[in-house]
Design a binder for these strands. Structure first.
Lengths: 369, 369
DNA sequence: CTGAAAGCGCTTACAG
DNA sequence: CTGAAAGCGCTTACAG
């Protein structure tokens, strides 16, 4: 088969104008729904557009209208591993959902999403992020993709919103409330279930969210008289594989496991449950396990995962809306007060903490005929 | 807090040139690593760039260099549901991984990914896809986002690669081999395990991949003398929720389940296993279940999922490479023969079909201490 | 309602 | 090695 590998150079607005017998101004007007173009003109233009398969060039349009209708998103992906990077890619579920939320919100306003992943080892690479900044009207930065100074540098010339970061004076930030529900989770495990020996498997040590979750959980549990195991043995990395390794490591060393393990996120909990089951331990009978996020799979696990639900897509959507407001703000008007947006979370008690099973969700049920 | 909602209008190449005391040509050259710019000039330019926080405008750059360094990706997302769209978003795992593969490959060549999701109900929306086409140098279309004629229309002016579609004369296509391993799966279930009554839970009826998987499985199983249940009761939608509904529906109707159920993808299998377990049935003891894709979670399920592994990220990476070749092809040179690229798959026998458990994966194991 | 012209911010031959 | 100038394909006042 012989495929035209590259179409002939695409038609421009001049080609359309010539074919329709009008000026390029008119073509531009009908294409943008401007003014009152005479119906006859309008029709001839549309006809020419269809015949030529004309698509306006986004770069030219952006250059003259000073708006690209594109927002950039930068997120962190695990370092490339030669042997089965597949496993690592799990912990992107959360990021992917955020991006989905951003994308859907953006679409409503005619914006598209330009995505760029960075590996952990290439942090603080302002250069790499600069090149993406030039391609969009504003940037949304996921947690841990850039240092504060790097963010500030970019924010000098581009509107920036950070996710789960720390609010700054030059960028807006969107995150979800972590402290209250981690404390409630600790209280639930200690008071309601009577567990006295707990542990928290951490996420990335430098993640603000992780720090808050860890401290809230630990302090509340200790305040209620429970013991919380800590130390490097409990340092995870937000991935299922990380959770698996921690449990296998502890058991192989003959450690006595705690009665309940709170994980930094659902992915970690998935790995922990998998590993515990591997050794014949029952969850939650022998060890209770909880997550954070409430990813879609959490309810399809056995046992169903007790976790703290974040409004993941909503976080993305809000981030876009804030960014959009910054992008379309009138530069001459007084600056808008935008800063830190905090979305509510919710403790979801399912089976893995020791609570009874959730009843069947009616909306999922539908008889087949 | 009072945040500058929009930075002052960003510096241009003229600002840099003025500050460095050189022409814009020189600024452009050092920024693009062209020629032999004198070290002194180079330094002054870089200094001005840093002081100004200059980032070249992507639109202007694209307009004059005739290359945007952006590839567009269009994929299908489930229709918005008001009540818990969360559940539906599961079946995007596959698409997200493909996109990741594209993105990583693209980054190696200095390209970024522009993503655009379309809902099922807005199929054949050439207009919507036209607007994204104008923003990039080429397009990668996931399965089922556009009709053949819609694809052809776009391919008139833009390089296009389709995923898991049908090869055409105007677009390249990348997919993975489905038939051989679905036949092998059928043979494995019938001959090795001795199951005589099977079923296949379909994906979207109009998905080429689904059609091939269904037919290959069914024909092979029947050829070996087994029975394969069919009909609308077995019509899924590639989602876990779809799998759950099918099983609940059948059981609530008092249907006798088959001995083994092959699912169109892993997501569906996840839901099927969940629902079967819900009714106290053992997998694979009472009913064997298999998937397709080998998503990362497949190995962390209990039982571990028997499935057909697709090189998911590789599919994305190859799609990008093909597209990149089309984009950078010399228009005056003879057309390159590009057409249908088929990547190999692999049957992964784990527990859910009735095989013994996979041994611990050594690479995951690491003592803690 | 429509056209001629300027300008968006770069890159790239072309001279020097 | 460097600068002046043209041009990429649009949008948008400005006239008419």
């Amino acid at each position: 088969m012989n495929v035209r590998s590259k179409p002939d150079s695409p038609p421009t607005i001049y080609d359309v104008a010539r074919r329709a017998g009008v000026s390029i101004s008119s073509v531009s007007r009908v294409l943008n729904g401007r003014d009152n173009t005479r119906p006859a003109t309008r029709e001839r233009v549309m006809k020419a557009v269809a015949e030529l398969g004309f698509v306006p060039d986004g770069a030219a349009r952006a250059l003259s209208s000073r708006l690209k209708h594109v927002v950039g998103v930068v997120f962190r992906r695990p370092c490339n591993t030669d042997d089965g990077g597949t496993d690592e890619s799990e912990n992107l579920l959360f990021g992917d959902q955020i991006n989905r939320g951003i994308e859907i919100a953006a679409q409503r306003r005619g914006f598209d999403l330009l995505v760029r992943s960075v590996t952990i080892d290439e942090r603080t690479p302002p250069d790499r992020i600069m090149t993406i900044a030039g391609k969009c009207d504003g940037l949304i930065l996921h947690d841990q993709v850039l240092t504060r100074s790097g963010i500030s540098a970019i924010a000098r010339t581009t509107p920036v919103v950070s996710l789960a970061g720390r609010p700054g004076t030059d960028v807006a930030n969107v995150r979800s409330e972590c402290a209250a529900n981690m404390r409630e989770l600790a209280r639930h495990l200690v008071e309601d279930h009577g567990y006295r020996r707990l542990a928290y498997i951490a996420g990335h040590a430098d993640s603000p969210d992780n720090i808050v979750r860890s401290r809230s959980f630990t302090e509340q549990a200790q305040a209620l008289g429970a013991e919380v195991l800590t130390g490097p043995a409990w340092q995870g990395d937000y991935s299922a594989a990380g959770g698996v390794e921690i449990i296998r490591g502890l058991i192989s060393l003959g450690a006595t496991l705690p009665r309940a393990i709170a994980c930094a996120n659902d992915q970690t909990a998935l790995g922990v449950i998998y590993a515990l089951t591997e050794y014949g331990l029952d969850v939650p009978g022998d060890v209770a396990v909880t997550g954070f996020d409430d990813l879609p799979f959490a309810r399809h696990l056995r046992p169903q995962l007790t976790t703290v639900r974040q409004p993941i897509q909503e976080i993305g959507a809000r981030a876009f809306e804030v960014l959009h407001a910054m992008i379309s703000a009138d530069p001459s008007s007084p600056a808008e007060p935008v800063g830190d947006i905090v979305l509510p979370t919710e403790l979801v008690r399912r089976e893995s903490c020791g609570c009874p099973a959730e009843p069947l969700t009616p909306r999922l049920w539908r008889p087949i005929g």
